[in-house]
Design a protein around this nucleic acid. Structure first.
Lengths: 112, 112
DNA sequence: TTTATTCATCGTAATATTGCAATATATAAT
DNA sequence: ATTATATATTGCAATATTACGATGAATAAA
């Protein structure tokens, strides 16, 4: 058996953090996010031209991003306007900062 | 065809960022990292008891972590002492902060 | 109403990841 | 030398992810 990740072994926080981190774990999703950060607003069509992936593939990545809540989409006529969701973005930022700050940057050497 | 991620479509930075982000994209690896952050030092054996995964599985995750450079391992007799690698940690922290700061937290609404 | 246009979903193929038992390796202890 | 201990590696099974063509659904334009 196996291949599935054994979520029950880990804390809720660890599972949720990992889930969000996955958003940044694929270059296509990063590219989407960076495009949204630059243009402030966009529609899916732009991304198809921008990234060079098939429309279906991008739509799938957008769904993943939307699922975690880090972006939001609003139907605008026949197209969809996607953008960063400010609250989730801030929340995610804080999650990562909290993790990074657990290791003091003053620490020169750790142990080995 | 397909299933493979098309790295050539994305920038070097995007591919590298995604690679590092994957470190945080699995609860077991997060658990390992958090354990290292708490104990400051450790050996693999501790992790097997701590996490409840098979020794082979943990060894595999440790290898992934070591490959990205975010942890380092030093052979200490018959065991291995793993710890956070300060420089890579700082570097990774800065990568994420740079990304998060691209979206000004003052922004109330984006577009939609 | 027909026809575009835009995006979502389905089905499917291919690759990647996760997990573990078994085994290998290397050092320490006896 | 033999045995115990700790970690790595190999081989394999199972699940997850990525990608895309084809198709569907919804609105806009004609």
């Amino acid at each position: 058996m196996m291949g599935i990740t054994k979520k029950d072994l880990f804390t809720k926080h660890q599972n949720e953090f990992a889930q969000i981190a996955k958003v940044f774990g694929h270059p296509a999703r990063l590219a989407i996010i960076e495009y949204l950060l630059e243009t402030k607003t966009c529609i899916c069509g732009d991304l198809v031209e921008e990234l060079g992936l098939a429309q279906a593939t991008i739509s799938q990545h957008l769904r993943e991003l939307k699922k975690t809540g880090i972006i939001q989409g609003t139907i605008e006529g026949t197209s969809v306007c996607y953008c960063i969701e400010p609250k989730k973005w801030e929340e995610t930022k804080n999650l990562f900062i909290a993790l990074f700050d657990k290791y003091p940057s003053t620490a020169e050497k750790n142990c080995c």
